[in-house]
Simulated assay, not measured.
Amino acid sequence: MKHHLVTLGLAPFLLAQGLYVRRKTPRLPEPAGPRQGIQGQGPTLKLLILGDSSAAGVGASSQQQALSGQLVEILSASYTVAWTLTAKTGYTIKDLINILLTMPQMPLDIAIVVVGVNDVIKGTHQKQWEQQLDLLIQLLTEKLASPTLFFSGLPPMHLFSALPFPLKWYLGKRARYLDGTLSTHLSKYKHCQYLPMNLPFEPSYLALDGFHPSPDTYKCWAEALATEIVKKVHDV
Rank of each mutant, 00 (worst) to 15 (best):
P215V: 14
V6G: 10
V233E: 03
N118E: 05
G37C: 14
L14V: 13
G153Q: 11
S183Y: 12
P31G: 08
G116Y: 07
A82G: 09
L139Y: 00
H185W: 09
Y170P: 05
L225W: 03
L85H: 02
L136G: 14
L159R: 05
D179Y: 11
Q128K: 04
L178K: 07
E223F: 07
D209C: 01
G116I: 01
H158R: 06
I38L: 15
D52A: 02
P34A: 04
Y20Q: 10
Y194R: 14
E130F: 05
N198L: 14
S183T: 15
F150P: 08
L8R: 11
L167S: 03
I99P: 03
K2H: 02
K122Q: 12
P29T: 06
N98L: 12
P155G: 13
P26N: 04
P147L: 08
Y205P: 01
D209P: 02
M103V: 06
L136Q: 15
K46C: 07
P107F: 01
L75V: 09
I229K: 02
S161C: 11
A11N: 12
L108R: 13
E223Q: 14
Q128P: 03
S183Q: 15
T124S: 03
Q132S: 08
K122F: 10
V120E: 10
D179W: 10
L67P: 04
L67I: 07
E130P: 01
V113E: 09
P147I: 10
S62F: 07
